[in-house]
């Protein structure tokens, strides 16, 4: 269990770790001993906690299914008072993964990106226009930002602050287009008598990508059991207020696009022409 291998890192950060499933105490006990797991595994056999959190996956596993009661897999990270600082959820279609790879969430926690991120300066939520893509599709990666009160982030311009920039890691399966930013507003910083373009409040960044056509890489990608495109990158930014300027910083971002071959994308059977 990779989470186990990350445990020391979490402990150093003063974080407790626990993992919950709908399994019985006996199953978890056996699992813990076979996999040498030292952090608490929690048993929620009637899925009470899973339901209370709104995480029950009754789409893939409806009532009557042998696995009814399982959650959409994900992770919450809280502060010492129990306020959620970030949450990490995989796209629901990652459901086809094995238990082992879902337990690899620890990897997501260290190298990946939350779907929702919050710090003192802003809240960032990432999403995508379509969860399912096919070769040749153009889709939009969405970054919704909500700045904390009286703080602003910088738009590109003639200034020395770091503007909001999205850098996607190169991926042979997609071609990124230009990042679309909203219209900025001029901000006058009195002490320096400078006017710079900034963003405040809520705003949205849009990053279009075009999915590759039938290239060799695409053919390979489509052979996977659950084909997908993992897009990762970094949003860099700098945030200031009238009195405080934070250092330029970066936050990792990530999207998973489920990949389907073009010829499977058809109208529902009933509405097809004969």
């Amino acid at each position: 269990m990779e989470l186990e291998s990350q445990l020391e890192g979490f402990r150093k950060r003063g974080l407790g770790v626990a993992a919950l499933s709908y399994d019985s105490i006996e199953v978890l006990k056996d699992f813990a001993s076979r996999r040498h797991i030292t952090f608490p595994l929690l048993s929620d056999p009637e899925s009470k906690v899973i339901r209370a959190y709104g995480l029950l996956n009754d789409i893939d596993y409806p009532v009557g299914n042998f696995a009814h009661g399982v959650p959409f897999p994900g992770t919450f990270v809280t502060d010492g008072k129990g306020v959620i600082q970030s949450k990490y959820f995989e796209k629901a279609y990652a459901e086809r993964r094995t238990a082992a790879s879902i337990l690899a969430l620890g990897g997501t926690l260290s190298g990946g990106a939350p779907t929702e991120f919050r710090n003192e300066q802003f809240i960032l939520r990432t999403s995508v226009s379509n969860a399912t893509v096919a070769p040749g599709h153009r889709v939009t990666l969405v970054l919704d930002l909500e700045m904390a009160k009286s703080l602003h982030a910088y738009a590109p311009g003639d200034h020395r602050y770091r503007p909001l920039t999205l850098k996607l890691d190169p991926n042979p399966l997609v071609t990124p287009h230009d990042l679309v930013r909203p219209k900025s507003e001029p901000y006058n910083f009195k002490p320096l008598n400078e006017t710079v373009p900034v963003y405040t409040g809520r705003f949205r960044l849009l990053q279009d990508v075009t999915v590759a056509g039938p290239t060799r890489e695409m053919q390979e990608a489509l052979k996977a059991e659950a084909p997908s495109i993992e897009l990762a990158g970094e949003l860099s930014y700098q945030v200031c207020s009238e009195t405080v300027c934070y250092a330029p910083a970066k936050v990792p971002v990530r999207w998973t696009l489920r990949l389907i071959p073009l010829d499977r994308e058809r109208a529902p059977e009933a509405s097809r022409k004969r």
């Binding site: 979490f10 499933s21 809280t78 010492g80 129990g82 238990a99 926690l109």
Partner: peptide, 22 residues
């Protein structure tokens, strides 16, 4: 167990996973 008994000084990482059984 509850949040109080599981948390560290700076908080808790709470993972929901599918199953240990299959």
């Amino acid at each position: 167990r509850t949040f109080e008994s599981l948390k560290g000084p700076n908080g808790l990482v709470l993972v929901f996973f599918r199953s240990a059984d299959w």
